[in-house]
Design a protein around this nucleic acid. Sequence first.
DNA 1: ACTGCCGTCTAGAACGTTCTAGAAGAGGGC
DNA 2: GCCCTCTTCTAGAACGTTCTAGACGGCAGT
Lengths: 345, 345
Amino acid sequence: MPTTPAVPDGKRPTLAHVAARAGVSVALVSIVMRGAYGASATTRERVLKAAEEIGYRPDTRARVLRSNRSRLLGVQFGLRHPFHTDLVEGIYAAAEPAGYQVALSAVAPTRGERQAVEALLADRCEALVLLGPEVPAARLAHLATQVPVVSVARRLRPAPPAVDVVRTADDEGARQAVDHLVALGHRAIAHIDGGKAPGAADRRRGYRTAMHRHGLDDDIRVLPGGLTEEDGARAARTLLGEASTSRPSAVLAFNDRCATGVLDTLLRAGVSVPGEISVVGFDDTSLSRLAHIDLTTVAQDVPRLAELAVGRSIARLDGEAVPDGEQVVPPRLVVRGTTAPPATG
Amino acid sequence: MPTTPAVPDGKRPTLAHVAARAGVSVALVSIVMRGAYGASATTRERVLKAAEEIGYRPDTRARVLRSNRSRLLGVQFGLRHPFHTDLVEGIYAAAEPAGYQVALSAVAPTRGERQAVEALLADRCEALVLLGPEVPAARLAHLATQVPVVSVARRLRPAPPAVDVVRTADDEGARQAVDHLVALGHRAIAHIDGGKAPGAADRRRGYRTAMHRHGLDDDIRVLPGGLTEEDGARAARTLLGEASTSRPSAVLAFNDRCATGVLDTLLRAGVSVPGEISVVGFDDTSLSRLAHIDLTTVAQDVPRLAELAVGRSIARLDGEAVPDGEQVVPPRLVVRGTTAPPATG
DNA sequence: ACTGCCGTCTAGAACGTTCTAGAAGAGGGC
DNA sequence: GCCCTCTTCTAGAACGTTCTAGACGGCAGT
């Protein structure tokens, strides 16, 4: 059989099938499908009609193989993190108008970050947007030698030269939370930290310096936490094991999930929030807005973060001279129902 | 320059680069990279070393282009639905051991189902796993003529011949919920439905027949709802507008998100749950397990659903004769804190 | 009538991989 | 010596697309 296929017989239709049907060359069909210049209006119409009739669909993989641009943005995210899925929505919204496709690669219990990134690179993504990556900075720097890399929400210190960072001013967020609690009259304010999680170090530092500025050095207390509900619950159980007089009157949790675990444990133990203890979260995920949770929290500007991450990637790809250094987005405290003045006594 | 590249000069290394470095043919490197039979142990080692040194990474797109198997499973899901993201985790876990890659395509506010599916097909996925698809059944049937399609959680009636369906026995789940509430002593049990959402019709029907079987035909009441918190909140406001004597004593919501909206609205209005009204959800997403929500709900067997969906797709691809008809997984009621006997009065 | 240009179209070579044939060499049995 | 088989390797053609270079008219300007 020569290379003049007539009708797709069970196989996927290709440019050649369309070309045969429209009676033109493969190259011309390619021109029409791409909407490129170089085809007359009449043939354009004829080709499109033929394509429609046999259900032709361009094959992105072949397309990418040939043109060395893939216009594909690889995004690594955690399925379990509402904050990440919110960001992904923002990334779609920012990337598609700019003519970029988005390839998602999730981090899951059975699938580590290494695996997630390998999959994106094997797919020929032109740039990587990593949401809260937890791999060593050296690994990111190494990746960045091959492809532009943006780390969202994870600060890198010292910053590797080629890795872009887009993040919220975590220290500033922690400061806002502490200021709010102090203004309410709290002094014994504890922080349940995020351990080595992205952003945790900055939130911890922001907490410490804010406490210091209020002259509350002696009240500084950091409890080991983490980014899941279970981590928050564990820290709360530690607090419950103490005499109620030595307990802090307010707690700043690493994030909303952690704060939820804290709330959970306190409520089950009959400790009233915010009556006996005030609780503040971080992220302002949709979770915190629910009325029974109604969590006071530090909001991150998700659309802005997504937009900056995509913008940075594209700028690098277009060879624009991007200024080095991170892009920092200000947070905003959202006061809801889990904070109140401390119990008098 | 002839086709004997020495070192990747800014470009991505290819098989040819590895071959040149190891002093063997391209075909042999391909054999080694695939782990196929036909290379001696010593050369195998030499090739792998060369590949390692220049940081070679196979290009899945070229790979797919050549071998007409892509071993790629396309998954469409909603970023906002915790139930979907849980399923995605299960799908990864089931697909990767079977040697299949997973391509994710999210449905988001800026990105409809049509767009999501187009992207998957353009990527040459061999089969589509659609989580709770809402497009018309005819469209699914049309897609199924091109590629195996599995609809998860959405029943199709009448079933198009080629579309596989994997779902929970939604009617049975609703029945379990009603039985539970009746056993507690409730009679006035309302259902806030999911409208046209996947599974909604079956849950509605299950509710109706269960009520009928308990002789509670006069108490049947279906309120228009939906699958988001807002839909639940709206239905709850309707109930709050009524005299408390004519209100139902229990509510079965379409899903956990909807139930959360109901809880939210009731609590804000000072109506105690489960004191005055009992509430039951559906899905058993992680949300419902949180202590302040602590929602009684109908659990879907997520790992099993994922496993069946992947298994079905692969069976079709392997040309196994799969029995027609849907695969139905039994649900399981999880009793938590939002249900109790009705207030005596 | 020659030249040049523009609009339309086409042939054929890439892209990085896998697959099909078959070659080269080593050994074994007669 | 010859024939066979087995292992290890290679050349070259796919796969479906885009890109480069150029062909073929028609129309204007000299």
